[in-house]
């Protein structure tokens, strides 16, 4: 029943030749729906990320007009999308990204933090505990005069 209803509505809105402008077609309302519809123009259908919301091809522009008209007719976003799915099949619908989209980068960040912490702990050695401080101090003693002399020139 609902299938019939939406086809009917579709008929009505395509029949109506309301003059719409490109500006209205790229309005936020239209874009909100259009980004869930993938372009079917053929030259970009293999692309994973077609810019339906701003594209200029033979599919995108009329499709946006259709969306706009349906919105004018009072259809909800979901209903508009359903109408497109009705007409072109499920492959036209683009879902919202799932949680992996942000979970993966932020887990990577968390993992990276762990690695840095591990690295810092591994290479951290307080100066007092450096091995054989006596020996280094002895070496230092040997060269202290020269160093002091050089340092005196430092600005």
């Amino acid at each position: 029943m609902s299938r019939w209803k939406s086809s009917f509505l579709l008929l009505i809105v395509t029949g109506l030749s309301i003059a719409q402008t490109e500006s209205q077609l790229v309005s936020d309302d239209v874009r909100r729906v259009a980004r869930h519809i993938s372009c079917q123009c053929g030259s970009c259908s293999e692309d994973a990320n077609c810019m339906m919301s701003a594209g200029q091809c033979g599919f995108c522009k009329p499709a946006r007009a259709k969306i706009w008209k349906m919105q004018q007719a009072g259809l909800s976003d979901q209903a508009v999308a359903d109408a497109f799915v009705q007409e072109y099949g499920a492959k036209i619908y683009r879902a919202d990204p799932n949680a992996y989209g942000w979970v993966v980068p932020y887990s990577a960040l968390a993992l990276g933090t762990l690695v840095v912490v591990w690295f810092v702990r591994r290479y951290h050695r307080p100066a007092q505990a450096a091995e054989a401080p006596a020996q280094t101090d002895e070496t230092l003693g040997r060269y202290r005069d020269q160093i002091e002399q050089d340092l005196a020139h430092l600005d």
Binding site: A127, T136, T139, L140, R142, Y143, R144, Q146, I147
Partner: peptide
């Protein structure tokens, strides 16, 4: 003071 001492030690090691 601490860092200066460290650096001087490293300098001495390089000179050695």
């Amino acid at each position: 003071q601490q860092t200066k001492l460290d650096l001087q030690r490293e300098l001495a090691a390089v000179m050695a």
